[in-house]
Design a protein around this nucleic acid. Structure first.
Lengths: 108, 108
DNA sequence: TCGATATTTCCAAAGTCATGGAACTATAGA
DNA sequence: TCTATAGTTCCATGACTTTGGAAATATCGA
């Protein structure tokens, strides 16, 4: 026994609102798969990785890759509940830094 | 003499406003060089390829490449005057198709 | 018709990105 | 514990992107 040398799971990293970069956000949103994910998140709810992957008919490994990019760009927030990941749009953070952006991304 | 087999120069192609695609626009804007060009065009004026390339300190061949991508995505309009190309933002077209987008792209 | 100027096109090299199967990790529940 | 489930990470592959020098094209004015 004893503690493992490293934590078993890193806390999920999200950029601070003040650090959001428009070029990074645009690049992340500028892919048909990721833009469709953003549109699905435009309902304001929390969605699972598997649910989004299924909606887009892509393997979960591909979905997980795209969701990581969206999170690292600051477009989405991910929180862990059990083995699940609840993903939502950072609409308020995006709006405060880039007024009008959430509406553009989600089509209102 | 006689006419050449092909026209000496194609008319500069621009997508119609109704054909503008958000993922394509986002991808085009999601590059630091191109986003900076868009911000410079945010003054509403017409700018030359060489002027923009110089402002960004890149070779004109690189500038020309990025300007082609912006034009093909429908973000900019290019008109020829002599050997020069006058480039401007398609702010009204973008606004009508994606309300709020020009403000987001240019930082107002 | 020549030379200067503005820009585009060509090309190759280097870099980045998307894809998806397989292996792995974490958690819940029996 | 064991097993199922959810998601991540690893990895190879192929595809696309960005870069910039060189060559080509177009236009202007002397």
């Amino acid at each position: 026994m004893g503690m493992p040398a490293t934590p078993t799971r890193e806390r999920i990293a999200h950029p601070e609102t003040s650090a959001l970069d428009l070029a990074t956000i645009m690049r992340a949103a500028g892919d048909p798969v990721r833009l469709e994910i953003v549109r699905l998140l435009g309902d304001g709810g929390e969605h699972l990785c598997g649910e989004l992957s299924q909606a887009l008919q892509i393997p979960t490994s591909t979905g997980s890759y795209h969701l990581k990019l969206l999170r690292e760009a600051g477009i989405t927030r991910t929180r862990a509940v059990g083995t699940q990941r609840l993903i939502s749009l950072r609409a308020d953070d995006l709006e405060s830094r880039f007024p009008g952006l959430p509406r553009v991304l989600t089509g209102s």
